[in-house]
Simulated assay, not measured.
Amino acid sequence: MKVSSRSFTLGLVTAWYSSNIGVLLLNKYLLSNYGFRYPIFLTLCHMLACSLFSYIAINWFKLAPLQTLRSRLQFLKISALSLIFCLSVVAGNVSLRYLPVSFTQAVGATTPFFTALFACFMTSKKESWLTYLTLVPVVTGVIIATGGEPSFHLFGFIMCVGATAARALKSVLQGILLSSEAEKLNSMNLLMYMAPVAVIFLLVAALVMEENVVGITIALARDDVKILWYLIFNSALAYFVNLTNFLVTKHTSALTLQVLGNAKGAVAVVISILIFRNPVSVIGMLGYILTVIGVVLYSEAKKRSR
């Protein structure tokens, strides 16, 4: 039984790694290499898939117990989270048009810095001095990586930092807005309620900012039908990231997920460099390594302070 359980957990972790890195690399390929320059529409496809598959997973396959919304206020709170979530994903996808995956992963690793910052200002939650000290190599590493990045692009960098900050803000706000036991939702139910709201936000944004994107996509599909399969597979993979994230947390722990996430960033960097052959400098890699070390130290300091 133990061997079977370990194999199942290993399979989940492998699926989580594969889907995370896969969707990241496919986003980069579509938005940069393939030339599909519509990050809002791409995110809209992701959220449509998440809406459909979340409903099926919870209501048909019972992968998580159904949690119902208790009030209009709770729905408004989820809508606010959904808007911030949309901003983070769209900004992240925009950054992939201009920056290599390796560099976006380095910037994304600074999420703990922004989380600690928002938590301090919004909830007055203070961490131990050791925890704050571990954030120094996190930020220093990104500064070094930025200076040593051959493919640096200012607008892409701003979008990447914005995406990272928005992810941290969502995490802090989720703890504030859904703090009562009655309002707490597991990640699967939260996604099921957030995704349809996100679709509405993204649909309006796509119509305004990416004019005639549906017509352009159809025209592209007539010339190369593979674009449709790319979008369908990419959207399904985006949902699978959330599903495997939930299952890995359920069968291990949130702390294990955090540790695995730190390692995932490094794996994604190596694979992206091998696939896209983007130039990297020794200084840039040293900066990223310093950031990863800082994140690991931050995780340890947080664990000890509990």
Rank of each mutant, 00 (worst) to 15 (best):
T111L: 10
T111H: 00
P112S: 07
F113P: 00
A116P: 02
L117M: 15
L117D: 01
F118Y: 14
C120D: 04
M122R: 06
M122A: 12
T123K: 13
T123N: 12
T123P: 00
K125A: 13
K125Q: 15
K126F: 07
S128C: 04
S128K: 03
S128W: 01
W129L: 12
W129F: 11
W129P: 07
L130A: 15
T131G: 06
Y132T: 06
Y132L: 09
L133S: 14
V136H: 06
P137S: 10
V138C: 15
V142L: 07
V142A: 11
I143H: 00
I143D: 01
T146N: 04
G147I: 11
G147M: 12
G148F: 04
G148C: 06
G148L: 05
G148V: 08
E149T: 09
S151P: 00
S151F: 06
F152K: 02
H153F: 09
H153W: 03
L154T: 11
L154M: 12
L154W: 06
F155T: 14
F155A: 14
F155G: 05
G156C: 09
G156F: 12
G156I: 04
F157H: 12
I158V: 13
I158P: 01
I158L: 15
M159D: 01
C160R: 02
V161L: 14
V161N: 05
G162C: 14
